Computed example of a mutant assay.
Amino acid sequence: MSFTLPTVLAGAVPAGARLLDVREPDEWAAGHAEEALHIPIGQVVGRLAEITEHAGEDRLYVVCKVGGRSAQVTAYLVQQGLDAVNVDGGMHAWQAAGRALVSEAGEPFVL
């Protein structure tokens, strides 16, 4: 039985979607989607309840820098029964699609 990872282009993520950013703290501080929940990849398993609560009944869009780490997390979350989707191309694609980013201080930012 094969598994196809659910994937979406950054520009196709709906406004107001539930986002999970799995990058490291320094990457997050440099620029992130304002509405994203930040849980570094190494903390995902231990913070699954927090992720599940953040997602609620909604689809969860998982993002990292270019899409590799978020793909791993998306596969794990799908195995846990969540409706999770990998954001193809990560934050680089997010910015290229013209999606807003803020810095740790909440100011508009460009990667």
Rank of each mutant, 00 (worst) to 15 (best):
V73G: 09
L19D: 01
L101P: 03
G11W: 08
G56N: 08
A71L: 03
A100I: 00
D26G: 09
V63W: 01
V102T: 05
N86Q: 05
I51G: 13
V8D: 03
V44G: 06
E107M: 13
R99Y: 01
Q80D: 02
A10E: 07
A84P: 15
H54A: 12
L9E: 15
T7S: 14
V45C: 01
A12T: 05
L19R: 03
Q43T: 08
V102F: 08
T74G: 07
A49Y: 02
S70G: 08
G11A: 01
L19E: 04
V45M: 11
V22T: 09
L60E: 00
H92W: 14
V73E: 01
N86H: 06
A10S: 02
L82C: 13
G11P: 12
L5N: 02
G81C: 11
G56W: 06
V13L: 03
V8S: 06
E104K: 14
A30F: 14
D21F: 07
H54P: 15
S70L: 08
E50V: 12
Y76S: 03
A97H: 07
A30H: 12
Q80T: 08
T52H: 03
T74H: 06
A15Y: 00
G89Y: 06
V45G: 03
P40K: 10
G68S: 11
E24G: 07
G90C: 07
H32F: 06
E24S: 08
L19A: 01
P108N: 09
E107H: 09
V45L: 11
G106W: 12
D88Y: 10
C64N: 08
R18I: 05
I51A: 10
G67M: 09
L20V: 05
L19T: 04
A36P: 00
A10I: 10
A30K: 12
N86S: 11
I39D: 05
Y61T: 02
A71T: 01
V62I: 11
R59M: 07
T52M: 00
A84R: 04
P14I: 04
V63E: 00
V102I: 15
A84T: 06
L5E: 04
L101F: 13
I39V: 15
A71M: 00
A33S: 11
V13I: 06
G11F: 01
G46D: 13
G42A: 11
T7I: 12
H54R: 08
G42K: 04
E50K: 02
N86I: 02
G31T: 10
K65E: 14
Q95F: 13
V45A: 15
R47M: 11
P6V: 04
D26S: 15
A100K: 14
K65S: 13
R18H: 09
H92K: 14
S70N: 06
V87F: 07
R99M: 07
G68M: 14
G11L: 05
G67H: 10
L60D: 05
L111W: 15
P108E: 05
G81K: 11
H32V: 03
A29V: 02
A71E: 02
A105Y: 01
L101A: 10
G16H: 04
